[in-house]
């Protein structure tokens, strides 16, 4: 049994202009102690996936159908009361912008202790001790002093450390990191990623890393899901996705990032066109209008996910055409 199992998830926002299918038939599973990366452009539905798991979608968004199982227990349809026991306790989240996700009118200590008191039976004093312990764990100097400070008194990297401390205070099984380093500088990003990986090994939790940065994916993830327009293009182990991409969108993404080791300045090959309008989804593959290899069937019918390797699934008609995929998981890894 997987730690987290998402099956055919559909989440939509019902706007006055029409239904926006932000997540459109997403399936994946997350195993204990693994780091799963979700990569995609803005509007691909990666954050909405995270919010759906925790059910923190704001109006007019809601889960339309699908199943989210955590330890085999169905989360879709749970009441707010029941979800509150899971959020911040069993599944935690850290957001992109550490400034707006901390309350500016309360001290750091106040906010940290609140989370601990809420989910454990520690009293004020014990939770304070736990807060100090957590701040030490995430590498914040003078933790006692920091507890009395407000968010504005800390730097961006420091705030993100506080967020991580808060998220990990109850020893969650899953940590969802929604673009945790996008707002930070490269040297601080390296610090935070290193810290997250260290804690992941120490505490044995699973991480869902949502990012648009292929570099971050390559350096920390075991498995990757590539999303486009609310659906999965391709998913598999990090090596399979990077060295053997089986979807035109993934290939396009790889070609459009500058290569640091290239001294010849080879021109980039961008993906043509503009991202899809989620209000007007085409009937076929959502990437087909921008895909250079698009065939007739791509425009008419949405491709299903097929196995293209032992740990590698792809939703692209090209694989079907070339006959390099199967409906059953193959026994041996293809070379």
């Amino acid at each position: 049994m997987s730690l987290l199992e998402v099956r055919d998830l559909h989440t939509s926002f019902f706007t006055p202009a029409g239904e926006v299918k932000a997540v459109n038939g997403l399936s994946f599973s997350l195993e204990k102690g693994k780091v799963l990366g979700i990569v995609g452009e803005s509007g691909s539905g990666k954050s909405v996936t995270a919010y759906s798991i925790l059910q923190i979608l704001t109006h007019p968004g809601r889960i339309v159908s699908g199943s989210i199982r955590f330890h085999g227990e169905e989360l879709v349809g749970k009441s707010d009361e029941e979800m509150r026991k899971i959020r911040g306790n069993k599944i935690s989240i850290i957001f992109q912008d550490p400034m707006t996700s901390l309350n500016p009118t309360f001290t750091i200590g106040n906010q940290l202790c609140e989370a601990i008191e809420m989910h454990t039976d520690r009293n004020r004093e014990q939770s304070r001790a736990r807060a100090v312990e957590m701040l030490k764990l995430v590498g914040i100097s003078e933790p006692e002093k920091r507890l009395k400070q407000y968010a504005y008194e800390l730097s961006g990297g420091m705030r993100q450390r506080v967020m991580i401390a808060m998220a990990l205070a109850c020893e969650p099984d899953i940590l969802i990191a929604d673009e945790p380093t996008t707002a930070l500088d490269v040297t601080i990003q390296a610090q935070i990623l290193e810290l997250m990986m260290k804690l992941q090994k120490e505490l044995g939790m699973a991480i869902m890393m949502i990012t648009h940065d292929m570099g971050v994916i390559a350096s920390v993830c075991d498995e990757v899901i590539v999303m486009y327009a609310g659906g999965v293009c391709e998913r598999g182990t990090t090596d399979a996705i990077f060295y053997n991409p089986r979807h035109e969108y993934t290939r396009g993404l790889m070609r459009s990032i500058p290569d640091m080791s290239d001294d010849e300045k080879t021109p980039l090959i961008p993906i043509t066109g503009t991202p899809i309008d989620l209000l007007h989804m085409p009937p076929g593959c959502p990437f087909a209008p921008r895909c250079e290899q698009a065939m007739k069937i791509c425009l008419q019918e949405k491709p299903k996910e097929y196995w293209v390797g032992r740990d590698h699934l792809s939703a692209c008609w090209m694989n079907v055409k070339d006959g390099i995929c199967c409906t059953e998981r193959p026994e041996e890894e293809e070379s």
Partner: peptide
Amino acid sequence: LMSAVPIPDPKES
């Protein structure tokens, strides 16, 4: 600064 840039290549990384 250069060493902190994440390389989009798992093996190199």
